[in-house]
């Protein structure tokens, strides 16, 4: 993880940074979900969700007490499970650009300095998949309904994916990946916006519990 951190860190030419990790978004307002049909909820969410997202995000990478920001131009096709991303510094310098799908990542451009220090494309590809792929649970997922949330759990890789739906709109608010009952990473979706009648996640945090880093992502524009 140290290598991963260093390579992204160098990309932005930041040293001696400091930052705090207080929660940057408003907490979810939990409301009673009594009487909701979980399968209908899942289906409704899937139908509302944009299937082809072309977005400009700001990305804050946090590791321990340090943080830095970048801009990401990202296109994700949820039907074909493919993505394209260009990551730039806030002054417009391209740091890397890549395309990928569920299986592989193809770098188009990566700053030489980054290539020398680790497999950045793979790391970025994995995080994009964690956040945007498998956005809704499968129909076979196990359902657990509680007063304020509905949880779907399905097998995934060596572990399982857990989806939590909650809030007044009862949209997806959390996604967790667990192995042997331990959370390895989580994505918290704090807010969504409608663009052209479709839902886009706007404020979210990826927490990688094992590696100890956070990605805080804010939707800035839908071009």
């Amino acid at each position: 993880m140290i290598t991963r951190f260093k390579l992204i860190f160098l990309a932005l030419i930041i040293l001696c940074g400091s930052g705090c990790s207080s929660l940057p978004f408003k907490n979810i307002d939990y409301v009673s979900l009594d009487g909701l049909n979980p399968n209908a909820l899942r289906q409704e969410f899937q139908e509302q969700l944009a299937q082809n997202l072309e977005i400009i995000n700001s990305i804050v990478f946090q590791y321990k007490w340090q943080s830095f920001s970048a801009l990401g131009y990202t296109q994700i096709d949820l039907k074909s499970d493919t993505f394209r991303v260009s990551c730039l510094s806030p002054v417009g310098i391209k740091l890397f650009e890549l395309t990928g799908d569920r299986q592989e990542v193809k770098p188009i451009f990566v700053l030489k300095e980054l290539l020398q220090r680790g497999d950045l494309p793979r790391a970025v590809g994995e995080d994009i998949r964690r956040i945007y792929f498998d956005f809704t649970p499968l129909p076979v997922a196990k359902i657990e309904s509680e007063k304020y949330k509905i949880t779907f759990t399905q097998p995934s890789g060596k572990g399982e994916l857990q989806y939590v739906f909650a809030g007044k709109n009862h949209w997806l608010v959390e996604k967790h990946y667990l192995e042997k009952k331990h959370k390895l990473w989580s994505v918290y979706y704090y807010d969504y916006e409608l663009h052209n009648g479709k839902l886009y996640p706007t404020n979210l945090i990826l927490k990688h519990h094992r590696f100890g880093y956070n990605l805080i992502i804010r939707l800035k524009e839908v071009p």
């Binding site: 030419i13 940074g17 400091s18 705090c20 400009i56 700001s58 340090q66 830095f68 002054v91």
Partner: peptide
């Protein structure tokens, strides 16, 4: 789309952005 500042003063460089809220310096 993001509020950000880069200041170069002689050999000192510092930067800030609204999302990380961090001021960082580079020697």
């Amino acid at each position: 789309p993001l509020r950000y500042t880069l200041i170069i003063s002689g050999s000192n460089i510092s930067q800030w952005d609204e999302d990380s809220k961090a001021v960082q310096s580079v020697s």
